[in-house]
Amino acid sequence: MEPDRPPSAPTGVTAVAGSATSVHVMWNQSTDDQGVRRYDVLLDGKKVKEVPAERHMVDITGLRPGTAHAFTVRALDSAGNEGPASKRVAVTTPKQGTEDTRPPAAPSGLTAEAGGSRAATLIWKAAEDDAVASYDIYQGSSKIHSVGGDSTSAVVTGLRPGTAYRFTVKARDAAGNVSPASPEARLTTSGKGSSEAGAAPTELVAAARRTDEGHYIDLTWVAPRTGGEVTEYQIRLDGKQDTSLVWGGKVPEEAKYSFFVGKEAGVKHRVKLRAKLPDGTWGGFSPERTVVTGEE
Rank of each mutant, 00 (worst) to 15 (best):
Asp238Lys: 00
Ala223Phe: 04
Ala255Met: 09
Ser179Val: 12
Pro201Ser: 03
Glu254Ser: 11
Ser244Ala: 06
Ala208Asn: 10
Ala175Asn: 09
Phe260Arg: 05
Leu219Trp: 00
Thr163Tyr: 11
Ala164Trp: 03
Arg186Met: 12
Arg186His: 10
Thr163Asp: 07
Gly228Ala: 13
Val261Pro: 04
Glu232Lys: 04
Ala265Glu: 08
Val251Thr: 12
Thr188Asp: 05
Thr211Phe: 07
Leu187Arg: 09
Pro252Tyr: 06
Glu254Asn: 13
Glu254Phe: 06
Leu273Asp: 01
Tyr233Pro: 00
Ile217His: 01
Ser258Asp: 13
Val205Ile: 15
His215Leu: 04
Thr220Trp: 05
Lys250Phe: 05
Asp242Lys: 05
Leu237Tyr: 01
Asp212Ile: 14
Ser190Lys: 15
Leu237Cys: 02
Val251Gly: 02
Gly193Gln: 09
Leu204Asp: 11
Ala174Asn: 12
Pro183Gln: 10
Ala223Asp: 14
Ala181Cys: 09
Arg209Met: 11
Ala174Phe: 05
Ile217Met: 02
Thr188Ser: 09
Ala265Val: 10
Lys240Pro: 00
Gly266Met: 08
Val205Lys: 14
His215Ala: 08
Ile217Thr: 04
Leu219Glu: 02
Ala175Thr: 02
Trp247Ser: 09
Ala275Lys: 02
Asp218Ser: 06
Lys170Ser: 14
Asn177Gln: 13
Lys272Phe: 13
Lys250Asn: 11
Lys192Tyr: 15
Glu196Tyr: 07
Gly239His: 08
Thr202Glu: 15
Thr220Pro: 00
Leu219His: 03
Tyr233Glu: 00
Gly214Lys: 03
Gly249Tyr: 15
Asp238Trp: 03
Thr163Lys: 11
Lys250Ser: 12
Val222Gln: 15
Thr243Leu: 03
Val251Met: 10
His215Cys: 05
Ala181Glu: 15
Tyr165Glu: 02
Leu237Glu: 01
Thr188Ala: 09
Asn177Tyr: 06
Val230Cys: 01
Val169Arg: 11
Gly228Val: 11
Lys268Val: 13
Val271Lys: 00
Ala199Pro: 11
Glu232Leu: 01
Pro252Val: 09
Thr226Ile: 00
Ser244Gln: 11
Arg210Met: 13
Leu237Asp: 00
Ala197His: 12
Asn177Asp: 08
Leu273Cys: 02
Glu196Val: 08
Arg209Trp: 10
Ala171Trp: 00
Trp247Asp: 05
Arg274Pro: 02
Ala197Thr: 14
Ser194Thr: 08
Tyr165Gln: 04
Gln234Asp: 04
Ala200His: 12
Arg225Met: 06
Lys192Phe: 15
Thr188Ile: 06
Phe259Lys: 06
Leu277His: 00
Gly176Ile: 09
Glu196Ala: 14
Pro183Ile: 01
Thr163Ala: 10
Glu232Ser: 04
Gly191Ser: 12
Asp212Phe: 11
Thr168Asp: 12
Pro224Lys: 07
Ser182Cys: 11
His215Glu: 06
